[in-house]
Design a protein around this nucleic acid. Structure first.
Lengths: 240, 240
DNA sequence: ACCTGAACACCGTTCAAGT
DNA sequence: ACCTGAACACCGTTCAAGT
């Protein structure tokens, strides 16, 4: 049995808080996501959430067992938003490319949620729908089952891994200091001790903190396509 | 100028704490890493660190400006441990494969440190040495500079991204519940609503929470090698 | 010179009391 | 029925006081 994320989802009658707000799961999730979007690294706390809602912090616990449960629900809302805009074009590679970029972008709007939820399994219908879409794209393109599952797993863990690290990067308190540290260090690396760094210092310095996910995604999709072609030419893919 | 991580690195005379311990940067870092290794998700806090050290929590602030600075120093210690054991075999692909796996494994021993530091730039000699090693492997193998830098960037961000997410996964309070949720959900998905999931349910259920990093790493190294070969056959790599 | 202890401004969560 | 408020057991960090 899947655990319930919402403690009292069935109830109907609600009393407004002192501030006159009527609470619900949906508006708590939206408020929590907005807090992360607006205040960034200051992040989310039960007490701040209470204040933002115009309610006592403890009121949230009637809707979610814990902050962890709220986070799970937030993860789900993100999956829903990405999946909702999905439309298949029949080209699996273009579709997965688009899906990957928009999922990563959605997570980047809520870096704290990305970091915390990238490794979670919610077991919700939104999650199921996302998995179904990706599998449909691959199986529809002629991938045999084991390759479709392998491709799905590689695709989704890649997206979530980059979302986790890129999200963490966005949350670094003084991100500028980190990037400046990079430029300073690599521009002044000694040519005797670090000949290879010195030789490519100019190229290294172009580092601007942007994500390598878009490129890594394109490369992975190319590799997955190669797996499919290899299979069509009857080669065993066992030497992966 | 790179900021100092250690506030008073120069001082010599030290007085033991009440518990009779003589503090130093090194033993604070080691204690902090051990705390993460042993107590896992309970994690690290200034106050617990003080207790573990046999000192008042505030004493740590004479050695590190903040917990953030301590984390940076811990990240550096992890890089040092991985780089120290490096020995080149002349085969760039085998070397990077070994380096990637051991770096990821080292981070997985300290998942909290991995999660927090995967997106940080320390600017230390350990970090420089790591970058130098990777660039040396690629440039030594005949990669032109721009491809060596591209390969380096793809390789290192992949390792750190998977370390960040896999680390977060290890920290999930009730990891078993998440994996059980996965098995339950996908085994019982309706064949009408989710035909593709139902068709491959058995393959999906084999999910055991292990990382896809080893496979993703092998695939990326294959792609990087293909870039090199493409360059040797005089094809422009612009359509990446 | 270096560690301690009190203080400040925070956390998540529980539960009896209020409406 | 649902929200509030007090309480408990925590945080990171600063700084005057102690040795």
């Amino acid at each position: 049995m899947v655990e319930r994320v919402v403690p009292e989802a069935g109830r109907k009658r609600r009393r407004p808080t002192k501030a006159g707000v009527v609470l619900s799961e949906g508006m708590i999730i939206d408020t929590a996501l907005r807090m992360i979007e607006e205040h960034g690294s200051e992040g989310l706390s039960a007490r701040r959430l209470g204040r933002a809602l115009g309610a006592d912090p403890s009121a949230v616990y009637r809707y979610f067992h814990s902050m962890d449960d709220l986070l799970l629900a937030m993860a789900d809302e993100l999956i829903t938003r990405v999946t909702r805009e999905w439309h298949s074009t029949g080209d699996w590679r273009a579709d997965l490319h688009r899906w990957g970029l928009s999922a990563h972008a959605e997570y980047m709007k809520y870096p704290q949620a990305a970091q915390i939820t990238a490794a979670r399994i919610t077991g919700s219908t939104a999650e199921l729908a996302g998995v179904e879409l990706i599998l449909a794209a691959l199986r529809g393109a002629g991938f045999p089952d084991h390759l479709a599952v392998l491709g799905y797993r590689l695709f989704i863990t890649q997206m979530l891994s980059y979302a986790a690290r890129d999200g963490a990067g966005k949350l670094v308190a003084n991100r500028r200091a980190d990037i400046d540290r990079w430029k300073n260090t690599y521009a002044h690396a000694s040519a005797e001790t670090y000949p290879n760094i010195a030789a490519v210092a100019e190229l290294l310095e172009q580092h601007d903190g942007s994500s390598t996910y878009p490129l890594a995604l394109r490369l992975l999709l190319g590799t997955i396509q190669a797996m499919l072609e290899e299979k069509h030419s009857s080669t065993r893919p066992s030497d992966i």
